[in-house]
Design a protein around this nucleic acid. Structure first.
Lengths: 352, 352
DNA sequence: ACTGCTTTCGGGTACGTACCCGTAAATATA
DNA sequence: TATATTTACGGGTACGTACCCGAAAGCAGT
């Protein structure tokens, strides 16, 4: 069991080029102090040998550590959704800590645009090497990432995208398609002409995500020539009583609602309402693998949950930055996450 | 940006214990040549400092490479299912090659027990450090893994499990639950009293998997007090004509079959039959994200595919061996894969 | 006390890369 | 031509661990 002796390192390159290791190192890292002639010669040999740097040795010898900033919403009582990405980040960090990589969390408040601005400025002051962010506030995110661009700091979006920006990558759901899948599941057993209700419950100022989801949802009906009436309702208050009030009103206005689609993780509130008001035989679909939702999935009030692996999103985002900054390999510009379907029967095996 | 200076390595341990680095190294690796007194003292300091070895440096300095044997079915015209695990293995190997880890593939023929025996003997002769295997032939797998046990070679099962064996880990589906999910999807829109057909198409000698899936499938009906008649049929020939013949016969005998559940990836053959014989309005569910199946998913003949991430299974299995052999960390004894539901609407985002 | 053997331990080099520092050569300035 | 400045490059050490080799210490038997 001997080490692969066919491996060629800087030493061999230096030998072949009749230069020192230090000079080869200069070429590899595009440092100054090498004549054009030597540089060319060394680069040729590097290509010829298909030189792959040994990352172990590289990171071991290198002194400087790489700092990644994480700019995501704070976990609030509002929703514990962002716990999952946080886990993914920690998992990734544990794996690559040995390579001299550190992450620093910058949390902002989803109800407070200014907190986003404040945190993003802190990141710029700190002078980090890479950024992972959820662009919850679009305008502010654009300003911030433009500044990153200027400073050559790579950044990755998760959860939702701003396609026009030059992000290193977007890692998250295809929201339109996600709504489309929701419609398919909802209509899989819906009867011909009954009504369908779309519910959006969100305090959040921006609801960019929601619009794309609903568009996908409606498109499915169009594509399949289903002319069920789609009733929609917006709720700015997220507490149970407000939701119950709104729901009571809707059911009063529309007697024949057969299926409900909630566009985010607050579906459990609607589930509670259905349960408390003893309404059965109504299909209910919503988003995200959070505790409250799984409970209602288990009791059968929620039929399906759709989920986009938030933990995995963040994990991959960190890894994408790592790949760029340490390995120097390229990264897929858009990585759509799977649109996972969770039911009472398979939830126990779900991997967020 | 300086390296974390709070890190204590062997050097610091040696200094505190008034011994050389070499002696500390002996203690860490349980080598001989250290007095009981010194050993104890060093171990105490190690514990006190919560010493974490630097894997980079460790693997860089170590000369011996670690060889992992992969014992899985050959990719045949029969089914390209095993292409996916192969990809997962290659992905894992690429990631950890730098750590001095190599994999060697040993393919066997699913129709030939002897080929399994032959390949497993080759592995034992080679003297590898770890094994990843799909225990397609149960008896032979038991014999082989017992031999591994004797030689202290860790092994990981994927795809299906032999619970009694002391494998390092099982990484694969919970087959019973998988059949259960299949039943849920199938019955989600099934009408009261029509018949349901379970199809098993397999040349393979052993079909241990199949039995567990069918059990789960039937249990769902019991649990939900559905008394639909469940017709079952076995086919030993996998070619289209044979399948079509069998199917014609079944439909002749049972006019009112409303839904079909195929227990493995050969569902596309049944789909072709339904398409060619112009039978509509029959729900069809089967297994695995392979090209042929996705095509029928797309045309709407197959309603759902269930899949257990075969690529990911193999990737994780390699990583589990790596963790044990290199990092020395422990590994989950059973890692059930998600029971993924694939539809026409979400298949393009599926990650195998 | 001498030889031979075992146990216990330390010095030192190697892994492949990063990077500091010093110096020779090339070029510019006087 | 002499001196200052820049450019090009090499020597050598460091990162943290693995492991070879040799030596000192301890112990046995004579």
């Amino acid at each position: 069991m001997e080490k692969d002796s066919t491996y060629f390192g800087v030493k061999e390159i230096a030998r072949r080029a009749n230069v020192s290791i230090a000079t080869v190192d200069r070429v590899i890292h595009n440092r100054t102090g090498v004549s054009e002639k030597t540089r060319k010669k060394i680069n040729e040999i590097i290509k010829e040998l298909d030189y792959q740097p040994n990352i172990l040795a590289s990171r071991l010898a290198s002194k400087n550590i790489i700092i990644l900033a994480i700019l995501i919403p704070r976990v609030s009582e509002e929703t514990d959704f962002w716990e999952a990405p946080l886990r993914g980040i920690q998992r990734a960090e544990a794996e690559i800590k040995q390579y001299g990589i550190q992450t620093i969390n910058y949390f902002f408040d989803l109800n407070d645009k200014d907190s986003f601005i404040k945190q993003s400025n802190l990141i710029l002051e700190k002078g980090v090497n890479g950024v992972l962010l959820s662009p919850s506030f679009i305008e502010q995110s654009i300003l911030f990432t433009q500044e990153c661009q200027k400073r050559k700091i790579p950044y990755v979006f998760i959860d939702s995208n701003i396609p026009e920006q030059h992000s290193l990558s977007y890692i998250g759901p295809h929201l339109f398609k996600s709504g489309y899948v929701g419609a398919k599941l909802l209509t899989y057993r819906v009867k011909s002409n009954n009504k369908v209700l779309v519910v959006n419950i969100s305090k959040e100022i921006e609801n960019y995500n929601y619009l794309q989801i609903e568009e996908g949802f409606r498109t499915y009906f169009k594509d399949n020539h289903m002319d069920n009436e789609i009733v929609r309702i917006d709720m700015k208050e997220t507490d149970y009583l407000s939701v119950a009030r709104h729901m009571t009103y809707v059911f009063h206005m529309h007697k024949d609602i057969e299926a409900i689609f909630v566009t985010n993780s607050r579906v459990f509130t609607v589930a509670s309402f259905l349960q408390n008001s003893h309404r059965k035989n109504i299909s209910l679909i919503g988003y995200d693998f959070i505790k409250e939702n799984v409970q209602h999935l288990n009791t059968g009030v929620i039929d399906f949950l759709i989920c986009h692996k938030p933990e995995e999103q963040a994990y991959r985002a960190v890894m994408a930055l790592y790949q760029t900054l340490v390995i120097g390999s390229s990264v897929e510009k858009i990585q759509y996450m799977p649109i996972d379907i969770i039911t009472k029967e398979n939830y126990e095996f779900y991997q967020n």
